[in-house]
Simulated assay, not measured.
Amino acid sequence: MDETHHWVESNHGVYVFETLDRNVRKTSGAGSRWVQTTNAFNPAENSVAQRVAESTSKSRLYDCREAQRNIDLDDEEALLAGLKEAYGDSYWVDFSGLVDAIQDKATTPASVAYRFYLNNIAEGADGWMSKEEWDGSFSDSDPISPGDQISVGFDGSLRGDSTGLVGCRLRDGRLFLLGLWEKPREAGPDWEVDVLSVEAAVKRAFETYSVEWMYCDPPYWQEPIGRWSLQYGDDKVFEFWTNRPTRMTNAIERFRTAVSTGDLSHDGNEHITRHVLNAVTREVPQGLLIQKNSPKSKKKIDLAVCSVLAFEARADAIADGRLFKRRRRVAGF
């Protein structure tokens, strides 16, 4: 059984493992055995690799080489030593190539480096964005102004999760908060999002800025999104289903790369920052998705989703030729 950190409930990997394990146990007297090889597992996924690692069965031998924790990835000497510790006697490994891959931060997030190269298994190792990386995109210069061309990302809920609205300036990829509706701590179980307040915020965004493209995650909000499309233009307001892995993983990857390369900035808004840093990754065949650290977690990530949608909407608006578009003038004689 190979790559069992990918064997999870959603792809039926757990079912396959349980079937194999039962059959091996039935014939263990005849010398039957199974063996697994795996990378470090994601503690949020409860994969087969995690289940076996945490098993108390005396019939299983668990062997793992893990590098020292919290190695400075920019320290080439320390990184090389950590890689050699993790890979042991794997003489065929190209360590210089691994160092180069890890230090290419545009394509290798720190969480991936620690998990897949240094074999570190730890809570939080699956974090999507480190505070250091996100703070590196902060800028307090050139604030957003009325009339700026922007794109908008919207992720809505009614009760459990937050509802958010994030803008992104077209000319430089600068993110800013347009609205957040989040259940207060003191609120009771009957709390709901103020739909009229959300409607007002969307109206205010279109009146204040030149909104060129808006992506909206439709669940629970298809009727309002349809009205926004009629009111503000079906060439500006679009549905974006975040539960479609191929499209969403591509958008998340572009956002993550933009943070690493400095092609995105933000004004340090505390709510966007909190949601971005709350997000953890989940690996699917198409790539990496972002999610809460557990289904019932109170650490919300909705503004992180809004930010991804706003940045993706910016890219599509620019590709459509809407950046610095010429405005028609009519002269009278």
Rank of each mutant, 00 (worst) to 15 (best):
V99H: 07
I102Q: 04
D104I: 09
K105E: 13
A110R: 12
S111H: 09
V112D: 06
A113R: 05
Y114H: 12
Y117V: 05
Y117E: 10
Y117H: 14
L118P: 02
L118K: 03
N119H: 15
N119Y: 10
N120M: 07
N120L: 14
N120Q: 15
I121M: 12
A122Y: 07
A125Q: 06
W128H: 06
W128E: 02
W128I: 03
M129V: 14
M129P: 01
S130Y: 09
K131R: 15
E132W: 08
E133V: 14
D135E: 15
S141P: 01
S141E: 14
I144G: 01
S145H: 10
P146L: 12
G147T: 10
D148F: 08
I150T: 04
S151N: 06
V152R: 01
G153S: 05
G153F: 04
F154N: 00
D155H: 08
S157E: 04
R159M: 11
R159Y: 12
G160H: 11
D161Y: 07
G164M: 02
C168D: 05
G173N: 09
R174L: 09
F176Q: 01
F176A: 02
L177V: 00
L177F: 00
L178Q: 04
G188F: 10
P189R: 15
D190E: 13
W191H: 05
W191G: 02
D194K: 04
V195R: 11
L196E: 15
S197R: 14
V198P: 00
E199N: 14
A201K: 07
E207V: 05
E207F: 10
V211H: 02
V211K: 03
W213M: 14
M214T: 14
Y215E: 03
C216I: 13
D217R: 02
D217S: 06
D217F: 03
P219F: 14
E223I: 12
I225S: 04
W228M: 04
W228I: 00
W228C: 02
L230S: 12
Q231M: 12
Q231F: 04
Q231N: 12
Y232I: 05
F238G: 01
F238M: 08
F238Y: 15
F240K: 05
